[in-house]
Simulated assay, not measured.
Amino acid sequence: MSLDVIVVGGGVSGLATAVVLAERGQRVRVWSAEEAEHTTSAVAGGLWWPYRIEPNNLVGPWSARTLGVYESLAGRPRETGVRLVPGTVVGGTVAELGDWAASVTGLRAAHAGELPPGHTKGVRARVPLVDMPVHLAWLRRRLEAAGGTVERRAVHALAEAAALAPVVVNCTGIGARELADDPGVVPVRGQLVLVENPGLTEWLVLPDDGGSESAYLLPQPGRLVLGGTAEEGDWRREADPATAAAIVERCARAVPEVARARVLGHRVGLRPVRRGGVRIEAERIPGGGLLVHNYGHGGAGVTVAWGCAHATAELVP
Rank of each mutant, 00 (worst) to 15 (best):
Thr40Leu: 09
Leu15Ala: 07
His293Ser: 10
Ala180Cys: 01
Glu231His: 15
Gly190His: 03
Glu34Asp: 14
Ser63Glu: 10
Val155Ile: 01
Ala16His: 09
Thr88Val: 15
Arg140Lys: 15
Val186Tyr: 10
Met1Arg: 09
Ala154Leu: 14
Gly25Ser: 07
Ser212His: 14
Gly287Ser: 12
Leu204Met: 11
Ala125Val: 09
Asp4Tyr: 04
Asp131Cys: 04
Ala44Pro: 06
Leu143Asp: 04
Gly296Thr: 14
Arg177Tyr: 03
Gly9Phe: 01
Arg279Pro: 04
Met1Asn: 10
Ala18Glu: 12
Val104Thr: 11
Glu144Gln: 09
Gly11Met: 01
Arg108Trp: 05
Glu231Lys: 09
Ala101Val: 12
Val104Tyr: 06
Glu238Met: 14
Pro256Ile: 07
Pro219His: 13
Thr66Leu: 13
Ile174Met: 07
Pro133Trp: 06
Val94Asp: 01
Val195Met: 13
Val130Ala: 05
Val186Pro: 00
Ala180Pro: 02
Leu204Glu: 08
Val185Trp: 01
His119Lys: 13
Gly75His: 10
Asp182Arg: 05
Gly265Glu: 05
Gly10Cys: 14
Val43Ala: 09
Val302Ala: 12
Arg76Phe: 13
Val123Tyr: 09
Ala112Phe: 09
Val205Pro: 00
Gly87Glu: 08
Leu3Ser: 05
Thr17Met: 06
Glu34Tyr: 14
Arg260Lys: 11
Arg271Pro: 02
Ala252Met: 03
Leu15Tyr: 08
Leu179Arg: 02
Asn170Thr: 06
Glu79Trp: 03
Gly148Glu: 05
Gly98Gln: 02
Arg275Lys: 13
Thr172Gln: 09
Leu164Gln: 09
Gly147Thr: 03
Arg275Gln: 14
Val248Ile: 15
Leu291Val: 06
Ala239Pro: 11
His38Leu: 15
Ala154Arg: 15
Val123Thr: 13
Leu67Phe: 12
Leu139Cys: 15
Asn294His: 02
